[in-house]
């Protein structure tokens, strides 16, 4: 057998089957129930805040259909603010998906990239890197909206 054909792992101590078994048995698992409960409570708190802001806009005389947009904008502003103050990542470490799934996660991904890359300048840094994490959300959001839009047009 030539040198190229030899199994490079032949002489090593590694037994892949044994390692997979070890992985299954001993690798620490995420504390699922704790994560789910904290995500539920955290996400719920964001929604509660959203509802409170929405009601505030409506009580100021804004029509119910139009009050949604300024509510989302306010939530985005709060999330971006907390990111800038260095608090958001500490909160997200506890509640996880509770902050990642609502619009707060989206705002955080954009703001954190903008802050991180500001040292590369406005053009090569902040401007071009800002949407590096959120970009796929936008692209696939638009694609999904397009597909759903066509299906809905065909049905009606």
């Amino acid at each position: 057998m030539s040198r190229m054909e030899q199994n490079p792992n032949k002489e090593l101590l590694l037994d892949k089957k044994w390692l997979n078994e070890w992985n299954r048995q001993k690798k620490p698992r995420p504390p699922l129930s704790k994560n789910i409960i904290s995500a539920f409570l955290g996400g719920g708190a964001v929604c509660l805040l959203g509802q409170f802001i929405l009601n505030l806009f409506i009580s100021q005389g804004m029509p119910k259909e139009l009050a949604g947009n300024p509510t989302i904008t306010t939530i985005i502003f709060i999330a971006a603010m907390l990111t800038g103050l260095g608090v958001f990542d500490k909160m997200a470490r506890i509640v996880g998906a509770g902050l990642a799934v609502p619009v707060t996660g989206f705002a955080n991904s954009i703001t954190s990239m903008a802050i991180e890359f500001k040292r590369e300048g406005l053009v090569l840094g902040t401007g071009s890197k800002m949407f590096a994490l959120a970009g796929s959300v936008i692209v696939f959001g638009v694609v999904t909206a397009f597909v759903v839009g066509i299906i809905s047009a065909l049905i009606h």
Binding site: K27, P28, R29, P30, P31, N35, T83, G84, G86, F88, D89, K90, M91, A92, R93, G96, L99, A100, G105, N108, S109, T111, S112, M113, I115, E116, F117, L133
Partner: peptide, 13 residues
Amino acid sequence: RYPTEYGFQRPGY
């Protein structure tokens, strides 16, 4: 990985 201010849960390992 991610920017320093990006919020996410790290796995236990």
